[in-house]
């Protein structure tokens, strides 16, 4: 418990750090920070609206620390300002809507590729040096070293354009209205296949290699040899003695991998025109919609921290040595 509480405190500090970056960046750039932040709106922003935005981002008359506190206050009250491109929509609702898509895509892809990669890694380590091991290891090298942009474009080119098996964009058929109907859900899945395929290709190899190496490092341990000497079945030794222990370092490396997952997911969404955060962000970058660009850093940080916390909790659940402590 103490462990988890300390982690929570650390996460709060990390969140404030991300907010601090947001606060100082425009002020560190050469030129007038207000001009930088809101110039892309042109003349569309009325005086009152501009004043409200300035207040949100801490541009108040007063010393820097007062500006900083004002900014932190707006963030902790859930006010991330308004989008300039989609004015007058608040940043939170623009990003919140997109976040659902991203979390859906990313979450599913992470679960699928973590499970798949872990199993491939277990088997590859268990049959060390076999053809299967070589295929998994070399495949993993290929899959992990190719940027997500490239994988998405190649997958899109072959399966979307050349073969024409799958749609080349959007999360669902734009002609359908979102509903809990079979048609709509079917369309969602159909449109989701290529982005999922891309993300799983990018991620599975990394998980497989991590698990394989962790397993191999454990296979010489006395408790594994003793399990074999006990005459237990191969699958029992492999899963409950070797893999169960190798899972611990694998799960803790998952925390770091989440950043990669997030990055890959953003890029994939842009390529497939998927309505998640990545796409919103892409539009925001093109329009220099700074409130949205800044807001996404905070939301992504929160997403990352939540994911890290889930990893922490599952680590504690998986390792009895941490439970009582």
């Amino acid at each position: 418990m103490v462990f988890l509480l300390r982690r929570l405190g650390f996460y709060l500090a990390a969140f404030i750090a991300a907010a601090t970056i947001n606060f100082f960046l425009p002020r560190l750039m050469p030129g007038d920070p207000i001009e930088i932040m809101f110039s892309s709106a042109g003349a569309e922003l009325s005086i009152e609206n501009l004043a409200a935005l300035k207040l949100t981002f801490g541009f108040v008359d007063g010393p820097l620390w007062q500006q900083y506190l004002t900014y932190l206050q707006s963030i902790f009250t859930g006010d991330l300002g308004r989008s300039i491109k989609y004015f007058p929509l608040p940043v939170t609702s623009v990003l919140g809507h997109a976040l659902i898509w991203t979390v859906g895509l990313m979450g599913t892809a992470t679960i699928v590729s973590f499970t798949l990669g872990t199993f491939l890694g277990i088997l590859a380590a268990w049959r060390r040096g076999s053809i299967f091991d070589v295929v998994v290891s070399v495949g993993a090298i290929f899959a992990t070293s190719v940027p997500a942009v490239v994988t998405s474009l190649i997958v899109l080119f072959f399966f979307g354009f050349t073969l024409g098996w799958f749609p080349t964009g959007y999360a669902a058929d734009p002609a359908l209205d979102p509903s809990f109907s079979l048609t709509y859900i079917g369309s969602l899945l159909y449109h989701g296949i290529l982005p999922m395929l891309t993300l799983c290709t990018v991620l599975t190899g990394g998980f497989a290699v991590t698990m394989r190496n962790n397993m191999i490092n454990l296979l010489g341990e006395d408790y594994i040899v003793m399990a074999r000497a006990k005459g237990l079945s191969d699958s029992r030794v492999m899963l409950w003695y070797a893999a169960r222990n190798a899972l611990l370092p694998t799960v803790s490396s998952l925390a770091i991998a989440i950043g990669t997952v997030l990055g890959g997911s953003l890029v994939t969404e842009v390529v497939y025109n998927y309505p998640g955060l990545g796409n919103i962000l892409y539009q925001a970058i093109l329009a220099r919609d700074y409130p949205v660009i800044q807001g996404q850093l905070l939301i992504m940080t929160v997403a990352m921290l939540v994911a890290n916390f889930i990893v922490d909790v599952s680590y504690v659940l998986l390792d009895p040595r941490l439970r009582g402590a």
Binding site: F10, Y11, N22, L25, M29, G259, G263, T301
Partner: peptide, 17 residues
């Protein structure tokens, strides 16, 4: 701390400014 702040979004903010 740097490890839990997502890298690509951070880079995007920096590069955007």
């Amino acid at each position: 701390m740097v490890l839990v702040v997502p890298n690509l979004p951070l880079l995007l903010v920096l590069a955007a400014f």
